[in-house]
Design a protein around this nucleic acid. Structure first.
Length: 423
RNA sequence: GGAGAGUUGGCAGAGUGGUCGAAUGCGGCGGUCUUGAAAACCGUUGUCCUUAACCGGACCGGGGGUUCGAAUCCCUCACUCUCCGCCA
């Protein structure tokens, strides 16, 4: 959520930057400013009224103590009206504030000045490409066929037990998943992230904190009977660990990592693009999160990007890094890098990581603050990144590393899998 | 799931419906003393809104109510703890 003060003081710039991400409802900005104006007027009025009422009540108390009952009763008679007026103001204030909040949450984050202008995925800027895309022979198979051929993933079994998008990993397939999780967690710890095992069901407040609610409600599975949501990413519980906290400036940077399953309803997305492991309702991911001092967040974003790339390099997968354009960025992000690996059999790039700086957009809702040098409270900056999402990595390992003999496991994973080949 | 007890400042812990934003202790910060430190002593120490600032206002788990006035009384929700039941 953007800070109202900032919008008020930088109206033109806010509009300009929102336009950069193709945000259409720019009139919201002026509406927010007007509502905030009204809110402050009511505040002033109701404060004055409360001050008067407080003074009267205090006077009555004093008179009662002195035994001047009659005088007290006289003031009491006059004080009767305060209640009603206060109630009226409070009602209007609640209305205005609700309206303001409703409009405020419709405003996405302001893009960083390096974000390219653009409408959609085709306008994303390719920052770099690394490694050589393998040329596969004509008889090369897509990963879903390899999965069946070597009996390591069973999509139909998952459909029986749950539904489409819930694959069952078997034998070496399951073992390889576990190996990747451990590898990613070990690497994250080496990079200074503290491992956490968070809850994977979260309450409403947490969903609001990181911005999944209210706008992405339909994307999460909801356990109605207990009003809990299955996490779409570990970002939610990890970042919410610090909701409503004032951290010490010296504790920065706070670096967390977690492995969790992730659940996404992906309503409405069916067809060729979602075959196999390309898009799932349940998948495994290792996430990294940082809470940092605002002065350092863009530096940190670069180190997170470099870190994610180091994983892809270790796995020896060809990848590219995109700087997302205004039109393709997530609602809450100020700057996002996407990492995509090359799926040799499908001949297309698959997103395996998304690294974002949210600046104060999340921390404003979460109330993650610290006391700066001037003694004033400031909002921390939050960042996160996938490091990494497993299914598409697995897809690329299967496709890119297929040989006549079988599938060659990347060297760094062999200590974790205990085998070199899936055959 | 049943019965009971509780939720107050960073922590511990008081609080008869009327100067209670809240005693006290610990902790934190500043100072005196000291070669330095400890101890002792003195002072200070919440967050938010409004404001250029002063003033003012709000907050004692959340929400609602009673009252001229609520941390204190009532209702409601959430959470925590204890006992019983069930259970990986």
């Amino acid at each position: 959520m953007l800070q109202v003060n900032y919008i008020r003081e930088n109206r033109d710039q806010v509009i300009e930057r929102l336009a950069l991400r193709n945000f259409k409802a720019l009139e919201l900005v002026d509406e927010v400013i007007a509502l905030d104006e009204r809110r402050r007027e009511i505040q002033t009025e109701s404060d004055a009224l409360a001050a008067e009422a407080n003074a009267a009540a205090r006077q009555i108390g004093e008179l009662m103590r002195q035994g001047k009952r009659d005088e007290a009763e006289a003031i009491k008679a006059r004080s009767g009206g305060y209640k009603e007026q206060q109630k009226k103001l409070a009602d209007e204030q609640a209305l205005v504030e609700a309206d303001l909040y409703e409009k405020l949450v419709l405003l996405p984050n302001l893009p960083h000045h390096t974000v390219p202008r653009g409408a959609g995925a085709e306008d994303n800027e390719v920052v770099l490409e690394h490694g050589h895309r393998p040329e596969l022979p004509d008889n090369a198979l897509p990963h879903w066929e390899l999965a069946t051929k070597y009996d390591i993933i069973d999509f139909e079994l998952g459909t029986k037990v749950s539904g489409s998008g819930f694959p069952v990993y078997k034998g070496k397939g399951a073992r390889l998943q576990r190996a990747m999780i451990n590898f990613f967690l070990d690497q994250a710890e080496k990079a200074g992230y503290r491992e956490v095992q968070p809850p994977i069901l979260i309450n409403e407040a947490s969903g609001f904190g990181t911005g999944q609610l209210p706008d992405k409600e339909g994307q999460m599975y909801h356990v109605g009977i207990d009003n809990l949501y299955l996490i779409p990413t570990a970002e939610v519980p990890l970042t919410n660990l610090y909701r409503d906290t004032i951290v010490k400036e010296t504790d920065f940077p706070i670096k967390l990592t977690a492995y969790t399953p992730c659940f996404r309803r992906e309503a409405g997305s069916y067809g060729a693009h979602v075959r196999g492991l390309n898009r799932l309702h349940q998948f495994d991911k290792v996430e990294v999160v940082q809470l940092v001092h605002p002065d350092t967040s863009y530096e940190v974003l670069e180190t997170m990007s470099t870190y994610v790339q180091s994983l892809l390099q270790a796995l020896n997968l060809p990848y590219r890094v995109l700087r997302l354009c205004g039109g393709d960025m997530g609602f809450t992000s100020a700057l996002t890098y996407d990492m995509e690996v090359w799926s040799a059999a499908q001949k297309r790039w698959l997103e395996v990581s998304s690294v974002s700086n949210f600046e104060t957009y999340q921390s404003n809702r979460l109330k993650v603050r610290f006391k700066g040098e001037n003694g004033k409270m400031q909002l921390a900056h939050t960042l996160n990144g996938s490091a990494l999402a497993l299914p598409r990595i697995l897809a690329c390992i299967l496709e890119d590393n297929q040989t006549d003999r079988g599938i060659k496991i990347p060297e760094v994973l062999v200590p974790y899998t205990g085998f070199e080949w899936i055959d």
